[in-house]
Amino acid sequence: MKKRKIPMRKDIVTGEMMPKKELIRVVKNKEDEVSLDPTGKKPGRGAYVSVNVDVANQAKKQKTFDKVFSLKIDDDFYDELISYVDHQQARKELFSDDK
């Protein structure tokens, strides 16, 4: 059986290459609206951030997405990102127990 290739993406905060499934996509559409993209299928320019609360907090502190998308983003977006990452991290830890 042929081994499947795992798509890799770069975390824009840490610069580390990781499997796409372990990252969250943030997308900027044509109207310059920035939003989370849990499905990974929204149209627009995408950037990836790791499912790690520390990395999300670092992104807020450094205003990483402001730089990547070249526009001013409200702190509300970063707060939404941090809460979403926290939720996803908790789910990952809860359901990752392989028994």
Rank of each mutant, 00 (worst) to 15 (best):
D66W: 01
E22L: 05
K2L: 14
M18R: 12
V34I: 13
I82T: 13
P38T: 10
V68K: 09
V53I: 07
K21E: 14
N52L: 13
D32M: 08
G40M: 00
N29C: 06
L36R: 03
V49G: 10
E33L: 14
I73N: 01
K41Q: 13
K3T: 03
K41I: 01
V34F: 09
L71Q: 15
I6H: 03
P38E: 06
A56W: 11
V68E: 11
V51E: 02
Q88I: 09
V49N: 01
S35A: 09
I24E: 07
S70M: 05
K63Q: 12
E31C: 05
G44H: 11
R91A: 02
L94H: 10
K63M: 10
Y78L: 04
T64L: 00
M18K: 08
A59M: 03
V85I: 13
S50Q: 14
K5C: 03
L23M: 04
K99R: 04
D66M: 09
L81T: 02
I12P: 00
A56C: 08
V68D: 04
D86H: 10
S83G: 03
F95M: 11
Q58P: 06
G46C: 00
V55S: 04
L71P: 13
K61W: 06
E31N: 15
Q62K: 12
D74F: 02
A56P: 06
D32G: 02
I6E: 05
S96M: 01
Q88L: 05
N29R: 09
L23Y: 00
K30G: 15
N57W: 14
L81S: 11
G46S: 02
K60A: 12
K72F: 10
R25M: 13
A59W: 00
I6L: 06
P43C: 04
D79P: 02
D66V: 06
G44K: 02
A90V: 11
V51S: 00
L94N: 03
P19Y: 02
K67R: 12
V13I: 07
L23V: 00
D86R: 09
Y48T: 04
A90M: 08
R45G: 00
M8W: 13
D11H: 01
D98K: 12
D76N: 09
S83T: 13
P19H: 03
Y48I: 09
E33C: 08
G44W: 04
K67F: 01
R4L: 15
S35K: 07
Y48P: 07
R4H: 10
S50I: 04
M17I: 07
Y48S: 06
D66F: 05
K21N: 13
T39F: 03
S96W: 04
P38F: 03
K92Q: 14
Y78F: 02
A59E: 07
F69G: 13
T64H: 00
I12H: 06
E80T: 15
T39R: 01
G46P: 07
K10L: 06
K63W: 08
M17H: 11
R45I: 13
G40K: 08
K99F: 11
V13R: 01
V51N: 09
K21T: 14
Y48L: 07
S70N: 14
M17N: 11
S35L: 09
I82H: 04
E31F: 11
A59Y: 00
D32S: 12
V55M: 08
S96K: 05
V49C: 14
I24T: 11
K3W: 05
N52M: 02
S50L: 08
D37S: 06
K3I: 07
R25D: 12
I73K: 12
I82F: 11
L81K: 03
E33I: 14
D32N: 11
E80H: 08
L94Y: 07
